[in-house]
Design a binder for these strands. Structure first.
Lengths: 115, 115
DNA sequence: AAAGGTATCTTGCAATGTTACATAGTAAAT
DNA sequence: ATTTACTATGTAACATTGCAAGATACCTTT
């Protein structure tokens, strides 16, 4: 039950996750599993491993991020991702788009009509 | 070109449009074409007719909205949509979820880490 | 060896915006 | 009357993408 609500949060993630991950990578390089753990306690942004790797692949194919293998002291090697120059400028654009959408929605939710 | 950015705005709409339309209908009843026009000048929330009707069908099937035919003084009849009681409470829940996600993303974009 | 945790990646599925098209009513122009 | 144009609702095929489940593999502990 409660199908609508759960599928709705899924839908909203589709637009937001990309931005969230780019924002994370702007601070410092991270590997897939680290991203999953880092977002795990953020309501609405929490994702599973099966979600993050295809997403990272897409971002790399779009040349917004780059990757490098590093050895891990405690397990299998990790693939660390960093923002490319293109990724930095895309992040800036997407941030602006996001703020615009967010503000518009905010005004709708408050019942503020401008037309 | 600029495929990524355009597809990205598409993706973000998928999570946000439902909420935007419910918010619109909370203010007053509206018909499909009116919703399209009303959102047309809102960046990131602008949609086409081919988008709004399937969406309204889904919302009605989920019993969040109800519809009633009315005559139009200038053209074909219009189907006016209103929020149901369930729609009102869903809207409240979705608004809270949205605010939570929005705040989390905001803190990420500002580089604020809490973990 | 066997078990368990860490880490990356793939497959199939379901949800949904978009384009393009179809249908139809009204009104003005030819 | 017929065409054109605007208003309005609805449908079909398509692409994108989060997600669950599973595969692969490395390392440590038992």
């Amino acid at each position: 039950m409660n199908v609508e609500k759960e599928s709705w949060t899924s839908q909203i993630k589709k637009g937001v996750l990309e931005l969230a991950i780019l924002a994370l990578l702007k601070e410092r390089e991270m590997y897939g599993f680290e991203i999953v753990s880092s977002l795990h306690n953020r309501p609405g942004l929490s994702i599973s491993a099966g979600t993050v790797y295809p997403l990272l692949s897409r971002l790399k194919k779009a040349m917004l991020i780059d990757s490098a293998w590093r050895e891990s002291p405690v397990g299998p090697p990790r693939k660390y991702y960093t923002l490319t120059a293109k990724g930095v400028s895309e992040l800036a654009e997407m941030t602006n788009t996001w703020l615009s959408i967010s503000n518009n929605l905010q005004s709708l939710l408050k019942g503020g009509f401008l037309e």
